[in-house]
Amino acid sequence: MPYVLALALTLLVEVPVYTVALTRAGGVRPSRAAGAAVLVNLATHPLLWWALRPYAAGPAAAYWTAFGLGEAAVCLAEGALLAPLTGLSARTAPPWAASATANAASVLAGLLLGR
């Protein structure tokens, strides 16, 4: 999948998930939640994409290991970035739960569309 398509798919899936999760669980205004979702994805998506490139042509086990570790790092980074962008405390569950849920949804969408 070309990078632009992967980014578009990620935003298409993750922005609504973040918006609903942060609005309902965190009381964040929908526009602020959506804006934060776009910003955290623009910060992390290119980094993960380019970090995985060296593993794409190698053994599958190396790629999937890097992919899993990279997605875990993205969840942590996005959760940490969401807190100040939304006004939520990093000591509460909403930024972390929203990040894990949004990233799981986009990974699932990517796997389903990649087949």
Rank of each mutant, 00 (worst) to 15 (best):
P95F: 05
A80D: 14
L47I: 15
T92P: 03
A61Y: 04
L42M: 13
V28D: 02
L47Q: 06
E71Q: 11
Y63D: 07
A100G: 15
L111A: 15
L112C: 08
L39D: 08
R24N: 00
L5Q: 04
R29V: 10
S99D: 02
L11M: 13
A36M: 05
A33F: 01
V15H: 08
A51I: 08
A8C: 07
P84W: 15
A33D: 02
L11G: 03
E71C: 01
N41S: 11
A93F: 14
R32A: 13
N41Q: 10
V107A: 15
L9Q: 14
A33V: 02
A73E: 02
G79L: 07
T23F: 03
T86E: 12
V28A: 00
L108R: 12
L112N: 01
L42R: 11
V20W: 05
T44N: 07
S31E: 13
A43F: 11
G26P: 08
A34K: 06
G35S: 13
M1S: 12
G35N: 11
L69H: 05
G27A: 04
P30K: 05
V40W: 03
N103W: 10
W49C: 09
T92E: 07
R24A: 07
P2V: 01
A77C: 03
T86Y: 07
F67R: 12
V17Y: 01
S31N: 08
A60H: 06
A109W: 08
A56F: 03
T101F: 01
L39H: 09
W96D: 11
T19A: 06
T101I: 07
V4P: 04
S99T: 00
P59H: 11
R29G: 12
S89G: 14
A72Q: 03
L88N: 04
A98R: 00
V38I: 13
W49N: 12
A102L: 02
S99N: 03
V15I: 15
L48E: 09
A102Y: 01
A56V: 13
A34G: 09
L81G: 06
A97E: 02
L112Y: 04
T92N: 04
A57V: 04
T86A: 12
L69P: 01
E78G: 07
A98I: 05
G114H: 07
P54E: 00
L48V: 15
L22P: 01
W96L: 09
L82D: 13
V74Y: 04
A36T: 06
W49Q: 13
M1K: 09
G87L: 12
N103I: 14
A109F: 10
R29H: 09
A34R: 05
V107G: 02
A8F: 03
R53Y: 06
E14V: 07
E71H: 00
A73R: 04
G114Y: 10
W49R: 10
V4S: 08
A25T: 01
A105H: 11
A61L: 04
A77L: 09
G58H: 04
